[in-house]
């Protein structure tokens, strides 16, 4: 802030040409006022994204490269040791970021595409379309999603593709509920009516009239759904039914190395090794939750503290 004048002059401020703040400036202003927790969340998310993108450059060894010594202790060559068949744990953690986050992100996007799209159609069309879709979602939501996912996985077999599709479809029910609820408030507005009378099609109304007006709650929901999907996939992988080896993934890494915990008394480092991937999962979800909390407070004016 080198250009701030030393004395304040009201006349100068009024006389200065009025410039409209761009989106970048506004985002920066909002960020400057953000609480520590939000900053923490943002930093965590950015760090994870960087690690995921540049995984091959950062990882000291290959994703499925096997070394001679299984369960090796922490050394210079293997900073976090090796796993049950001798793969470098640090490398797998780094590649795991790419796989786990990538799959969770794809799933969430797909869920929003399915659930959000259908919800907007239901909100615009109303009548029978809305009734049938809503009742279908009610029934799907009556079964706990982990149980449902387990059942579907037993039919279609455990593979990354079926994992993504199954979780996306199950999660799209939640997206449908919230999108339909917020879209219903917008659909009854005059400007939507005007667009309809103008003769615009369903797709145009969806994209140009409704979507921009329901964006903030959907963005917040995206963060929460991402956390949920991320945790579900981690749980399924942990159960051995999600992402299959040799793909590095945090959930299955915990399962594979869990037996190391019993040696914690003799070597604490070995004991906490299996917890590292789980901690990586927890840190990301905490970060996303903090950012979502802050974002919700920003957009809805909902302030819990004051």
């Amino acid at each position: 802030m080198t250009d701030t004048p030393e004395t304040y002059s009201a006349a100068a401020e009024i006389g200065a040409p009025r410039t409209r703040r761009g989106p970048g400036t506004r985002a920066w202003l909002a960020l400057k006022k953000a609480p520590v927790s939000a900053w923490f969340g943002l930093v965590v998310i950015c760090a994870y994204a960087l690690v995921a993108i540049f995984a091959p450059l950062l990882a000291p060894h290959g994703e499925a490269q096997v070394f001679a010594q299984p369960y090796a202790p922490w050394t210079a060559n293997h900073p976090l040791g090796t796993d049950q068949i001798g793969r470098d744990i640090l490398s797998r953690l780094i590649y795991g970021a790419r796989n786990t986050i990538g799959i969770a992100l794809t799933t969430t996007l797909l869920a929003f595409l399915i659930g959000g799209g259908l919800a907007l159609v239901a909100a615009i069309a109303r009548g029978w379309t809305d009734q049938i879709l809503s009742r279908l979602v009610d029934v799907l939501m009556a079964i706990p999603s982990l149980i449902f996912a387990l059942m579907l996985l037993s039919i279609f077999g455990a593979s990354v593709l079926s994992l993504i599709v199954i979780i996306a479809v199950l999660d799209s029910t939640r997206v449908f509920r919230i999108t339909r609820a917020v879209a219903m408030n917008v659909v009854v507005m005059e400007y939507v009516e005007a667009a309809r009378l103008r003769g615009e099609g369903t797709w145009w109304i969806m994209r140009r009239e409704i979507l921009p007006n329901i964006m903030p709650p959907l963005v917040a929901e995206f963060g929460l759904r991402f956390c949920f999907v991320f945790l579900t996939i981690a749980a399924l992988s942990f159960l051995g039914l999600g992402i299959q080896p040799p793909t590095a993934d945090w959930g299955s890494m915990v399962r594979e190395n869990a037996s190391l915990i019993q040696f914690a008394q003799y070597d604490l480092k070995a004991g906490i090794t299996p917890l590292l991937p789980a901690a990586a999962i927890a840190l990301l979800t905490v970060g996303v939750n903090f950012v979502v909390d802050w974002f919700l407070m920003q957009t809805s004016g909902l302030k819990d503290e004051h």
Binding site: C227, L231, A234, A235, F238, G251, V254, A258, I261, P274, L275, A278, A279, I281, A282, T285, V286, N289
Partner: peptide, 10 residues
């Protein structure tokens, strides 16, 4: 809430 159950367990 943000932690996976197996993390708490371990």
């Amino acid at each position: 809430i943000s932690m996976p159950e197996f993390f708490v367990a371990y």
